[in-house]
């Protein structure tokens, strides 16, 4: 039996004075789903995530999370404990002086005491292989380290589901592989925005798109791997 985590019904949203960016959108994420969202820039992908987290309010429509209709800020507080959002720009997410401070911030907000919060933070950093940077200053981290720490701050809240906003954009191959293997090993449901087809095909079971403010699923165009042959040049190159 599939139980829904996120249900969006007939959601519309417009930024003030602009054409609606989401227009009667329906979307469901069930337990165990690993969904990919691929759509052009400016089509409302990030807006969709922010709506789910209650950061912005839809002009109309119904949001149900874990089967419960979510209306007020206090309902969203519960949602934010159970759904983690990884921001597109990790600099938005990491505001504490040190890595450990930042990872412990979420657990502390959930009412854990200092020792428990540190223990959770340490445990999360260990599971992501980040213990050696635990005392580093957040703004001095490299782009890849920032993204991994941002992921750690979200995972430290032990969410049931993740919303990943371009988790590997702008990262080098090694960091991308690290994030890939972290996500693969997690027992968690997620929706992931990405423009990287290869990454999506590795990590998602469903892929949908956003068109004219609505979710579209194209069943005929499924992502699939294929083999090809070419001479091995001396320049580094990548296969998508």
């Amino acid at each position: 039996m599939t139980k829904p985590i996120i249900q969006l019904e007939n959601i519309s949203f417009a930024f003030p004075g602009r054409q609606p960016i989401l227009n009667g959108l329906d979307l469901t994420l069930n337990w165990g789903d690993r969904a990919g969202l691929i759509a052009p820039n400016g089509s409302g992908k990030t807006t969709l995530f922010h709506l789910v987290m209650g950061l912005i309010k839809p002009t109309s429509g119904i949001i149900r999370i874990f089967g419960k209709r979510i209306l007020a800020e206090k309902d969203f507080r519960v949602v934010r404990r159970r759904i983690g959002l990884l921001f597109q720009d990790s600099d938005d997410q990491l505001f504490s002086p040190t890595v450990l401070d930042d990872v412990a911030f979420g657990p502390l907000n959930l009412g854990k005491n200092k020792e428990e919060a540190i223990a959770i933070a340490e445990e999360t950093l260990t599971s992501l292989n980040l213990t050696d940077i635990r005392n580093r200053i957040t703004f001095k981290l490299s782009g890849g380290e920032k993204r991994l720490v941002a992921l750690a701050t979200v995972l430290a809240m032990k969410p049931d589901a993740l919303l990943l906003d371009e988790p590997v954009t702008g990262l080098d191959r090694d960091t991308r592989h690290r994030i890939e293997s972290i996500l693969r090993e997690l027992d968690i449901s997620y929706i992931m925005i990405s423009h990287n087809m290869d990454f999506l095909s590795q990590l998602t079971t469903r892929i949908f798109s956003l068109e004219n403010g609505k979710i579209t699923v194209d069943d005929t165009a499924a992502l699939h791997p294929h083999f090809h042959l070419h001479s091995h040049g001396t320049h580094p190159h990548e296969h998508k």
């Binding site: 921001f87 938005d92 997410q93 401070d101 911030f105 979420g106 701050t153």
Partner: peptide, 23 residues
């Protein structure tokens, strides 16, 4: 930027209280 940071903090359960870890 400030707005996005505040959002990110709220997403992690921030309710206006800060904590100090170091003793």
């Amino acid at each position: 930027r400030a707005e996005r940071i505040e959002w990110a903090m709220r997403c992690r359960g921030f309710r206006g209280r800060f904590y100090h870890l170091v003793d």
